[in-house]
């Protein structure tokens, strides 16, 4: 651990003082330097530093409308794609590198993540928490920015043929937004859908292995570990205007669904516009399927 820290400190540029201060201030840690969920701003900073090259040079992330994200409690709701949560990482990093007052985003992760060694600990230190509604409500009450993917694995596990098409949204996030009076910022992430263009998903194998999906891409598993390197697609993140809803958080699903559809519609619009404004023609655009 100490060696990793030293290597990172040697080979990566520290975050500017104001950025680091802002991150720490917004994190609200206790006497021991952690928050109750395990967020450790110093570890989060190191991780951000180490991934900065990937953010700026590999995926060349560009943000649009990030000023739409209000201060205080907020729910960031993007489309989900790309097999691995690279989109979550890029949105979280944009909130540090592109936002006016940088904040550590609290990502809601799948319930089985805490059982993974190393990854679960790193995720916790960087601000992620188990996707339990009670965690979400408590964090919003602490005025933290929440990152939630209502599509869940339905979105991240979809094949390339369904790119830029939103999958079914759950309703839980909207009930929490109603309960806590939290504005929802719809986000369209363009590009992450192409980082791992899954051709096929072995559903039966996934079931057998108790994992959410087992995709094959043009390079994986064909090229082994090398095939697990994501394609260097340019990623654009479009932040929409915040949506504020009012109503009974315990209303039946069909009432909530109307509001969920509004969020889904806003994200789909951001995606459609984002894809249309993308310059250049990538090889992947030539493949059939998807909305555009």
């Amino acid at each position: 651990m100490r060696l990793i820290k030293r290597l990172l400190d040697t080979f990566t540029k520290p975050l500017p003082g104001s950025m680091a201060d802002s991150l720490r201030e917004a994190a609200q840690v206790d006497a021991g330097g952690y928050d109750p969920w395990g967020l450790h701003p110093e570890t989060a900073e190191r991780t951000l530093r180490s991934m900065r090259w990937v953010y700026e040079n590999y995926f060349r992330v560009q943000t649009y409308g990030i000023e739409n994200v209000p201060s205080g409690r907020v729910m960031l709701v993007p489309n989900h794609s790309g097999q691995l949560p690279l989109d979550a990482m890029m949105v979280a990093m944009s909130m540090t590198f592109a936002a006016k007052s940088p904040r550590i985003v609290r990502g809601m992760v799948e319930r089985w993540v805490p059982s993974l060694p190393f990854i679960s600990t790193l995720f916790n230190r960087c601000g992620s928490v188990t996707g339990d509604p009670r965690n979400c409500v408590s964090l919003l009450e602490r005025e933290q920015p929440i990152l939630v993917f209502p599509e869940g694995v339905r979105g991240s596990g979809k094949t390339y043929w369904h790119r830029y098409t939103l999958q079914r949204f759950g309703t839980g996030f909207l009930r929490i937004a109603l309960q806590t009076g939290t504005p929802i910022v719809p986000i369209g992430v363009v590009g992450a859908e192409e980082t791992y263009p899954a051709i096929y998903n072995f559903e039966w194998l996934a079931k057998l292995l108790s994992v959410p999906y087992v995709p094959i891409t043009p390079t994986w598993p064909l090229l082994g570990p090398l095939g697990a390197i994501p394609l260097p697609v340019k990623i654009d993140i479009h932040f929409g205007e915040p949506l504020v809803f009012e109503g009974d958080p315990d209303a039946p699903d069909e009432e909530i669904q109307g509001q969920v559809d509004q969020v889904q519609g806003a994200i789909q619009r951001l995606l459609d516009e984002g894809v249309a404004q993308r310059s250049g023609l990538t090889m992947l655009k030539l493949l059939p399927g998807g909305r555009p």
Binding site: W37, D132, R134, N135, S138
Partner: peptide
């Protein structure tokens, strides 16, 4: 004791 709640991967915080 707090042990009665059990250590479980699904435990939320607080």
């Amino acid at each position: 004791t707090y042990h009665v709640y059990g250590a479980h991967e699904h435990n939320h915080v607080g």
